[in-house]
């Protein structure tokens, strides 16, 4: 494999070609926050929290480090003021829909204000970790995305979920970075984990769960 040499936060780093900026930085001990990244899964590039600023030539621009490939001569800033501001706004946006768990932790680190944006609680940040884990690792495809834009959601496909979820016992839940949903949800579906669940909610936040959760959080 060919090696490339780049600079991250002033440090010269040599990595193999095809390495992403995130991998390169982490290998050099530089921490970049992520929400949708998992080493076992193909990079998704959806949370944009791992945004970094790169300069090649005169132009500086923002890229997602989890998908951007390392290249010779690249100058990368992982903590420039612009990057920090972008992360802060992204976290503030996410806190409007999912104010707990990892989002909350990171929000504290970045000093976000929790009421900057109007709340619209969905408890899902659509990072796709559950969907991708189910598809890429478990090869089960029991859940997926439906809808688009601001209506996008994660759903279980009941026909598949009925067959494959019991054996897996909800490994996808432990990946969820939103904190509140998985535990509450797992408990709120008593049949979960048995060999024959009788009812399986189509949506992660089906109406009843949603109301319960909202009550718990407020």
């Amino acid at each position: 494999m060919k090696k490339v040499s780049l600079t991250i936060d002033g440090k010269e780093i040599n990595v193999e070609e095809q390495t992403t900026l995130l991998q390169a930085a982490r290998a050099a001990g530089i921490q970049i926050p992520t929400l949708c990244h998992d080493d076992r899964l193909a990079p998704h590039g959806s949370c944009r929290l791992c945004s970094v600023e790169i300069t090649s030539g005169k132009k500086a621009r923002i890229v997602a480090s989890c998908v951007y490939p390392a290249a010779n001569g690249l100058v990368v800033e992982t903590k420039s003021p612009r990057v920090v501001k972008i992360r802060k706004v992204i976290l503030e946006l996410l806190q409007a829909s999912s104010p707990k768990g990892r989002v909350e932790e990171l929000g504290r680190i970045y000093g976000t204000s929790t009421d900057k944006f109007e709340k619209e609680l969905t408890f899902c940040i659509l990072c796709g970790l559950c969907v991708r884990y189910c598809s890429e690792v478990k090869k089960a495809d029991a859940l997926g995305f439906i809808g688009r834009g601001i209506e996008k959601q994660v759903v279980f496909f009941p026909e598949i979920a009925l067959k494959s979820c019991p054996a897996c016992e909800g490994q996808c839940f432990s990946l969820c970075p939103t904190g509140i949903l998985p535990n509450k949800f797992a408990r709120s579906v008593p049949s979960f984990g048995r060999s024959q669940p009788t009812v399986f909610p189509v949506r992660l936040w089906d109406e009843e769960n949603f109301l319960n959760l909202t009550r718990n959080i407020e």
Binding site: S46, R48, L94, A96, F117, I125, G147, R148, I150
Partner: peptide, 22 residues
């Protein structure tokens, strides 16, 4: 138009447009 037509994958576009619209 855009908040409906965005694919909804990345946070700045989906959540950002949701809030811009609000």
């Amino acid at each position: 138009f855009l908040s409906d037509e965005s694919c909804g994958k990345c946070v700045p576009c989906r959540e950002g447009l949701r809030q811009l619209r609000k």
